[in-house]
């Protein structure tokens, strides 16, 4: 007979269970830490305009922790930056399967739709993003882009609202500048980059983007100075070196014209 107190004597079982729980917790902690670390690296790569490596890092972060919403949003944003808007839209839908009505993901989908010229879906997603709980600069940025794609006059107000959000930082200004660059509004892009420089004057990527803007405006000496400044702040930034080389190669009239009129292409 197993005895009626048999069930009370489970010290060793309890110890095992506790041990397993502790192990899983520590594993969980290490995974969360790893995911957070990868996410930080991915954000850093994104902030330096290295989209391919940022995408890989976001993916690795998600492999560690699938519930990391910023990584999902980052993936969609980077797909858009890589001009893979259809894939960005598909991927945002995938993310939304996991996080229904998530404002950030909806905003990212709105951006992808706006770049695909799907005005209706972009508008619907942007509305849903703003209606979702919480607030962030990114939602207003996506809203601004959606309006800018439809050439509506309230786009500027949305961008203003985005940078006025408490969570807004220098990179939001850069994102807005990149959006303006995409829609060939280079002077507006320059304006936002100047604001970003006021907030973070020591980040080389802002100078790099400023160089791109100035090159788009045909201000080649100023662009060269900006790239130079970027290299001073980060000597190993290959993209700035390449851009500077292409500027120095573009001394002939034809090359200058190509630089001015071919400003959609980024170095």
């Amino acid at each position: 007979m197993p005895g009626r107190f048999a069930n009370l004597e489970f010290d060793h079982r309890q110890r095992h269970a506790e041990q397993r729980e502790l192990e899983s917790r520590s594993q969980q902690c290490t995974r969360e830490e790893a995911a957070a670390s990868l996410l930080a690296q991915a954000n850093d790569a994104y902030h330096w305009g290295r989209f391919e490596s940022a995408l890989r890092l976001y993916t690795r972060a998600l492999k560690e922790e699938r519930t990391l919403i910023p990584a999902w949003v980052g993936q969609v944003q980077i797909l858009v930056q890589l001009d893979e808007c259809h894939e960005a839209r598909v991927w945002s839908d995938k993310g939304l399967e996991l996080f229904r009505n998530n404002g950030e993901l909806l905003a990212a989908k709105a951006q992808a739709c706006a770049r695909l010229n799907d005005a209706k879906s972009a508008s619907a997603c942007s509305d849903a993003a703003l209606a979702a709980p919480g607030a962030s600069p990114w939602r207003w940025i996506a809203r601004g882009e959606m309006l800018l794609a439809r050439r509506q006059k309230f786009a500027a107000e949305c961008f203003q609202k985005a940078v006025a959000e408490p969570a807004a930082d220098w990179f939001d200004h850069v994102v807005i500048a990149r959006i303006h660059m995409h829609y060939m509004r280079v002077t507006n892009a320059l304006h936002y980059l100047r604001q970003a420089l006021e907030l973070e004057p020591t980040h080389g990527y802002i100078w790099f983007e400023m160089g791109n803007c100035q090159r788009g405006l045909g201000l080649l000496p100023a662009a060269a100075q900006s790239y130079q400044r970027c290299l001073e702040l980060r000597a190993d930034y290959v993209e700035a070196e390449r851009a500077l080389e292409s500027l120095s190669d573009g001394s002939s009239l034809f090359a200058r014209l190509r630089l001015i009129f071919g400003r959609r292409r980024r170095p």
């Binding site: 996991l98 770049r115 695909l116």
Partner: peptide, 29 residues
Amino acid sequence: SMLQLSEMCVEPPRASKGRVATRVRQVWY
């Protein structure tokens, strides 16, 4: 929302070199 997280793929789809799907949709929409 989906609950089976472990089964979920986290590798995003990538476009072909010419971004054909994106270009077609940019004209179609």
